[in-house]
Write a protein that binds this DNA or RNA. Structure first.
Lengths: 180, 180
DNA sequence: CTTACCATGTAAGGCGTTACATGATTCA
DNA sequence: TGAATCATGTAACGCCTTACATGGTAAG
């Protein structure tokens, strides 16, 4: 089996526990998966069409609160495909932090500029942290009597821990730079 | 000014403190920048050619230990371009962790499989951590009497802190999953 | 002598973003 | 009635990876 396209797997994964529309999938990307994966409409809708063509998902029209939606459902083949992908060892984990890049080349700018980049980063992380903390407390209650969300909780905790570390680093970095 | 291509800036940033060949740039990507940026030869060499065409860098042949090399140097325009980019606020920091994805969809697999993914991640991080720790101690000595590497040290410390947190999370996650 | 590393590139093709295009509904 | 959000898509274009192609040198 050739290397799977990641977005196929992400979408199948989301569909594996509920039927969703393309719009809802995008929302999941922007909240639940935000801190370790991302995708735009321009990739989600075409991928969804592809999944249907390949028999890994089915498309169904439905109307909900006066709105027409296109609900996607995973098929047995889709589930098999997802399971196969989960068996394969992870190929690549990657980070692309423009912030770190701008810090790295700090010698070409004023210290104050570098500090601004750190502060902007810090604010963004603090915002996202709010969401993660709320998600964690909700999940902890749920997992207590239904453990199907335990993996979700695990990834949220990954996010919280790393974000916490980022914030710590921001403070230390600012302190360090003040001395120069 | 339109949105800058990131690789242009990364390369100019590297050239801003020393002349380098494409091959050496690739090596920097695989070591120094590894934990927050990456690039392949297939993108580095064409980008270098581009930079020369746009007058942001110059190319020069030279022979060193019997090898012919193509050394690239940043121009004044290149330096200006880099500085302009550093002034602009960061647009996007992104993570694409396949590992987290495979954990997130854990319900579709055995607990043992999820644990395998965590362990593979852990091993990879431990390996890279070795490099970072060595880099940190070298840098600390250097920075002591020459602070031009202070930003480099800062990013290395970012890497060490987050990797340390990742390893902590791995242990906690494995412990958590054992109970199910 | 052969493996590893130094060194530079090209071509095809995949993947994904941005911008554009459209239209309904809800709420203030 | 106008803004926000719901909802679905397409087209152009850019960027990057993979695989291919080539050849020199150092060290065991």
């Amino acid at each position: 089996m050739a290397t799977e396209k990641k977005l196929d797997c992400v979408i199948l994964g989301l569909l594996s526990h509920e039927e969703l529309t393309g719009y809802e999938i995008k929302k999941r990307m922007d909240t639940t998966l935000k801190y370790f994966w991302g995708a735009s409409y321009g990739s989600i809708y075409p991928t969804l069409g592809d999944l249907v063509n390949r028999g890994l998902a089915t498309k169904r029209e439905c109307t909900e609160n006066k709105r027409n939606k296109l609900l996607y459902t995973i098929t047995d083949d889709g589930r098999r495909y997802l399971k196969e992908w989960l068996k394969v060892p992870v190929e690549k984990d990657e980070i692309r932090y423009e912030t770190l890049l701008k810090i790295f080349f700090g010698n070409e700018q004023d210290v104050s500029q570098a500090i601004s980049h750190i502060e902007a980063f810090q604010e963004k992380i603090e915002m996202e942290m709010q969401y993660l903390l709320r998600a964690e407390s909700t999940l902890k209650e749920i997992v207590h009597d239904d453990n199907t969300h335990k993996y979700y909780l695990l990834t949220v905790q990954f996010g919280i821990k790393t974000y916490h570390t980022y914030l710590e680093w921001c403070e230390e970095a600012k302190e360090f730079l003040k001395d120069f």
